[in-house]
């Protein structure tokens, strides 16, 4: 046997193992290296927060007196009458979303929950299934806290 002949099969095996290792590295690390930011999904300042903030401070005039939606929410809970709140809320979100998005707003005071939405009105054809949401806490007339949560799919 010539000197070094036995080394050839080992050389071939080495190459095969190298190729297999590269394929394994490709499978393990290849598809995971795409990163993207989705800032709407993150906590922080987004357009939805602005929508909620502006909804709460939208001026409302009742019997020539100027209030904000925030006052109307507190007033509705103290009187347990949500008719005017529902009407004004629907007007605001009709303007804001113009039937292009699904929206749902809920108000919660010590387990008592009230919510309005256009979920039954709009034939929505969006691809995303998840609601984005924004939360605010507002005080009642007697110092309790009402949790307001706005959700949307556009």
């Amino acid at each position: 046997m010539r000197k070094g002949i036995g080394q050839y099969p080992m050389f071939v095996y080495g190459l095969i193992i190298l190729v297999l290792t590269l394929i394994l590295a490709l499978i393990l690390f290849g598809p995971r290296l795409d990163f993207s930011f989705s800032p709407e999904k993150n906590e922080g300042y987004g357009s939805l927060d602005i929508n909620l903030m502006n909804y709460l401070r939208t001026p409302v005039i009742i019997e020539n007196l100027k209030f904000s939606m925030m006052d109307l929410i507190a007033y509705s809970f103290s009187n347990n009458d949500f008719t005017l709140l529902q009407e004004r809320t629907e007007n605001i979100f009709k303007l804001a979303y113009q039937d292009e998005c699904l929206w749902d707003i809920s108000f919660e005071l010590e387990g008592d929950k009230k919510s309005f939405s256009n979920l039954n009105e709009v034939n929505f054809k969006g691809e995303r299934a998840e609601f984005d949401s924004a939360i605010a806490v507002i005080p009642t007339l007697d110092g309790k806290a009402i949790n307001v949560r706005l959700k949307e799919i556009c």
Binding site: L22, A25, L33, D34, S36, F37, E40
Partner: peptide, 20 residues
């Protein structure tokens, strides 16, 4: 070929910052 066309390109991390 594997190294040039598959492994090396896959190691470039694509950082999509457009949305941000």
């Amino acid at each position: 070929i594997l190294v040039l066309f598959l492994v090396i390109p896959s190691t470039y991390s694509k950082l999509d910052t457009e949305e941000a």
